[in-house]
Simulated scan of single mutants.
Amino acid sequence: MTTTGARDVHRGAVDTRTLPLYSAGEIDVPFVIAGASEVMARDTRWAEHSHPTHELLWNSRGASTATVGSRTWTITSSVGLWIPAGVPHTGWMAAGTWSRAAQFSVHEAPPLSTVPVAVDISDMLRLLLDRLGLDTLAPSSRATTEALVLDVLEPAEQQLLLRVPESLRLAPIVDAVLQNPADPTTLAQWASRLGLSSRTITRMLQEETGVGFSRWVSTARAHRAIALMAQGESIEDVASAVGFRSVSAFGTAFRRVTGMTPGQFRAV
C-alpha cells in the first residue's frame, strides 16, 4: 500500500507507467482479494497493460479514467470499474487523485462480469474493502470479509461511459469536443464543415457509440465536468468550462447523463 501526501502534488508533470500484458490466471496469486492505495503525486498515464487477476478500480478522492478499446469509463468515489483478468486497458489519473484498487484471484473469486462493467461503490463495499487493508486482520476474519465483498459487489445502474467513435470522418468532431468540451459547433455546422449530411453524422455516431450527436457531446462534457469537480472547481466554473451559460442548464444535462445533479455528485 503506497500513499503520497497531497502537499507533494505536481500538476502538469506527467508520469507514464508501464506494466506487463498478462493473460487471465497466468500468475498464481496467494490471495483471494488484495488491495492497493496511492495518492498520485503527478498526472499519471498507464500504458496498455492487463492483469492475471480481476481488478476493481475506484477512488477515495478525485476522478480518473480507464480505457478499453474505444470505451472510456470515468471512475469516482461512488462509481468504480470492474476489469476482468487479461483485458488490456490504459488509464489516466490527475495529480492529487487518491486511487484505490483491489485484485481478485481468478481461481478463488467468481467474476462479477466477463466484460468491463461499472460497479456501485456503496458505503458497505467501501468499508469492507478498507477492512481488508488492515494488517492485523485474522485469517478467519479476512475470509469472512472477502466473502462479504463478493456478496455485495454488483454492477452500477449508471455507467460513466464514453464511447469514442473510430471513424476518421468523425475524428474532427471527436478531437474538437475532447480538447474543448465548450466547443459550440452545432451538428448542422459540423455537417457543412465536413461535407456530410447531419443525418449521416448522426447515423455514424449511432452505429459506433449507440447515441446521437447531442447525447454524445453531453456525455463528453459530463466526463470533463466530473474531472473538474473532483479537482475542486466550483459548479459555476465547471458549467462555463464545459459550454453551458447557466448552472441550471448544466445541471439538467449532467443529470441526464449521470443520474444525479452536480450537487449530489459533489456530496458523494
Rank of each mutant, 00 (worst) to 15 (best):
T3V: 12
V238M: 04
A222S: 15
V164T: 15
E154P: 05
T16P: 06
P139S: 14
A102T: 06
V149K: 03
L56G: 02
G35C: 06
P165C: 12
T53I: 02
L150R: 02
I226G: 05
W92A: 04
T136I: 10
V68W: 00
N180R: 15
Y22H: 13
L19A: 13
L125M: 12
Q206I: 10
S122R: 10
A220N: 08
S113C: 07
V152M: 06
T2Q: 11
T185W: 12
Q189R: 11
E166S: 15
E166H: 12
L168F: 13
V149M: 05
E236R: 10
V29N: 00
P111I: 07
S246W: 02
D130R: 02
G62T: 01
S240K: 12
S77Y: 01
S99C: 01
G243P: 09
A109C: 12
R266N: 04
S105L: 07
L132H: 08
V117L: 06
E157N: 13
P165Y: 09
W46D: 06
D15T: 13
G86F: 01
G12H: 13
L178W: 10
A156P: 13
L170H: 12
N180I: 02
P181F: 10
V115N: 06
L196K: 07
A156L: 04
V115F: 04
R193I: 00
S140A: 15
S192Q: 15
V119I: 11
R193Y: 09
P172D: 08
T136N: 11
P165V: 10
V106L: 06
T72M: 04
Q264G: 02
A13C: 04
R42S: 05
E154Q: 14
S198R: 13
Q231E: 15
L170I: 09
G69M: 00
G251L: 00
I27N: 10
D28W: 05
V217F: 05
A6V: 14
W46A: 03
Q206M: 14
W82V: 02
I201Y: 14
S78R: 05
G35Q: 03
I121V: 07
